[in-house]
Each structure stands twice: as C-alpha cells, then as structure tokens.
Design a binder for these strands. Structure first.
Length: 344
DNA sequence: TAGACGTGGCT
DNA sequence: TAGCCAAGTCT
C-alpha cells in the first residue's frame, strides 16, 4: 500500500481476499500484474447492471459479447437484433441508448471509449454513475462511483439519518472523500461489493466488515435501518386488452413494433390497447376469444391485461404477421411472454 | 424536478 | 403475499 488512506487500504485488502469473479471483471491480482480491462466490456456491463442484479446480467453479458465482441461490431448491429437480445432484461431505453452510444463512440471517438469523466458523460445512456464507473474501472482514474450500494455504505459508516433522495449530494461528498488515488478502479468495485455482500439492505453482516471499527451507524445501533428513505407513492392498478392473432395455415403471428419512446419503447409485442385508459380498437376484425388474464407489475403501476386470441386471414390495421419460423417469445418483453404463454 | 421506465429474487 | 430492492438515466 502506498499513499492510500487507512479506510481505503482496509477495504482494498478485504477486496483482494474476497473479490467475486464476474465475466466482465479483471481480478485484482491480474490488474496489478498489468492486465488492462477492455473499456467496451466495462461499459456494457455497467449499463446492463443499472438497476439490475449481477445474477440477471451474467447470461445477457455473455450473449452480447459473443455476438458483438467489440464496440464497432455492436455499432454495426441491426436495431431489432439488439432489442431482441435485450428482451427480458428490462428498462429498454438502455438498449436504445446502448446502440446510440456505440455508434457515437465509433463515429466521434475513433472506436475508442473516452477516458475522461466529462467526455463519457456526454454519451447517450451514460449518467453520473456510469461515467464514474467506466473512468475508474476501465481507466483506473480516481473518480467516485455512487450507486445504491455506496449510498447505503456511506449512510451507515457516517450514521447519516437524513432520508434519501434529499441526502444524496451529502453521501456523494462523503464517498468522494474516501476515494483513493491508488487503485481507484479496484476501490470502486470494492465499495460496491461491500454493499452487495456485507453491508446489505437487510441484515448486514457487520461482524465480517473491514470497516466495522469505524462505522458510526453500527456504534449507534442503527446501521440496519439506514439509509432512511422517503415513502414511495402507491402503485395504481391499470387495465388493458391485448390481441394475439394467428393465421391459419402457416401459423404466422401478428406483432407490432412499439413506439421508440414510452413503456417497452422500441420492442416488438402483440397489439394492445393503451394501458392508461387509452382505448384502441382491435388490430383486425375477427372472432376474438378471451383466453385469460395476465397480471404484471411495472415500476410504477400494476397491470391487468385481458388476453384475446383469434385465428384469421384478415389483413391487420396495424402490425404485421411474422412467420412462425422466425418468431421467438424470448425476443419479447416479459409481459408479452406471459400473454403468449396463455395460448402456447 | 419528480415521475417514467422492467424485471426477478427475496422476505 | 405484497412490498422492497438491484452497479441509474432521461426528460
């Protein structure tokens, strides 16, 4: 250890012993031996990990990097292929911005990710967190990552009782004050690992924490109750209808591309009414049969969807029939897969 | 600036 | 079960 402050040093020592293996991660020993992370893989993993668990991301990351090994490959991909590969991971604006960002890196940065925070921050889908994560992890620059883990760790370490989101700027300051100049990339991953495995939201394992002796929240006996958060508004229940039309003979299925903005933006799906009271007509005339009901909860509302099905040769007013052979429910958002499962 | 934006796992 | 929670960003 060189000029690293004591707390950062303790955490890095813990990380060296306890780091978790992930497909996008360069282990600390390899990094110190001179292995340099691939900024493309760091960026891709960080975008996938936004509001998403490591377990959910692993297979998506492997598929994306197998299909598109470099940012230039991704930039050259077809939009619908990328959206289909992202299906099921959620927050689909991330996939749209992923493509925009890849194309901007190729068009404006010679296919090389920029290393400076301010430049990264200008790219689509890269906010304060992801810019800091790429700068720190991919380029070992002393930037401070502040995600939900870091907020929680800082709130507890300093016994901050003011609720989120009000207190976020203060927690950011506290996190910045601890960020070392030495090994900032490993340090960024270490604080997040600490939050993910030791300083967990419920039942933190304080006895195993490298910062146990310095933790004001633990000393005050309030660690597990931090960070405080303002109450969230209740989710309303919304209703809608969705139509699954199949064509007799070849079994083609009626799908439509959703608008680029809004819920499930840019994704393929079965035609439906709006889910906010908007009353759209069926996509074609047919003998519709109610086949069941789908319940799905989005971030801000519960949805109850009546699923109607029909076989018809009629021409659709919207959407287009897709050959059965090229239809894969895996390329649809989860709520659409649920509807499909009622007739499949 | 507060609300929109997915999903699956855990308690 | 119903709610909370996850390596946030955009508008």
């Amino acid at each position: 250890m060189t000029d690293t402050a004591p707390l950062a040093g303790q955490l890095l020592a813990w990380y060296d012993r306890n780091h978790r293996s992930m497909p996008w991660r360069v282990p600390p020993a390899d990094r110190q031996a001179g292995v340099v992370p691939d900024p493309y893989r760091v960026w891709l993993s960080e975008v996938m990990l936004q509001q998403t668990t490591v377990a959910a991301v692993r297979d998506y990351f492997r598929r994306f990097t197998a299909l598109w090994p470099t940012v230039a490959d991704l930039a050259a991909a077809r939009d619908e292929d990328v959206m289909a590969e992202w299906a099921g991971l959620g927050y689909y604006a991330r996939a749209r911005n992923l493509l925009k960002c890849a194309r901007a890196v190729v068009a404006d940065h010679g296919g090389q990710f920029p290393s400076r925070l301010e430049v990264l921050r200008q790219l689509p889908g890269i906010g304060p967190y992801t810019a800091a994560a790429v700068a720190a992890i991919a380029f070992d620059r002393p930037e401070t990552v502040v995600d939900g883990n870091v907020e929680r760790v800082m709130a507890r370490l300093h016994a901050v009782e003011t609720p989120l989101p009000t207190v976020k700027p203060r927690l950011t300051e506290l996190a910045a004050a601890l960020t070392p100049k030495d090994r900032p990339g490993d340090y960024a991953q270490a604080v997040m690992d600490l939050g993910a495995t030791i300083c967990t939201p419920r039942s933190p394992v304080c006895g195993l924490c490298p910062w146990m002796a310095d933790c004001a929240g633990r000393a005050a006996g309030i660690a597990a109750s931090l960070p405080r958060k303002l109450a969230k508004p209740a989710k309303p229940v919304r209703h809608g209808q969705i139509w699954i039309a199949t064509r007799p003979g070849d079994g083609a299925i009626l799908l439509e591309q959703r608008p680029d903005s809004g819920l499930l933006g840019g994704m393929a799906g079965f035609p439906s009414t709006g889910w906010d009271g908007t009353d759209l007509p069926a996509p074609l005339r047919a003998e519709w049969q109610t086949v069941g009901e789908v319940r799905h909860t989005f971030t801000h509302f519960h949805l109850i969807l009546t699923v109607l099905a029909a076989e018809t040769m009629a021409s659709p007013l919207r959407g287009q029939f897709q050959p059965r052979s090229s239809f894969s429910p895996a390329s649809l958002p989860t709520v659409m897969r649920k509807a499909w499962s009622l007739i499949a």
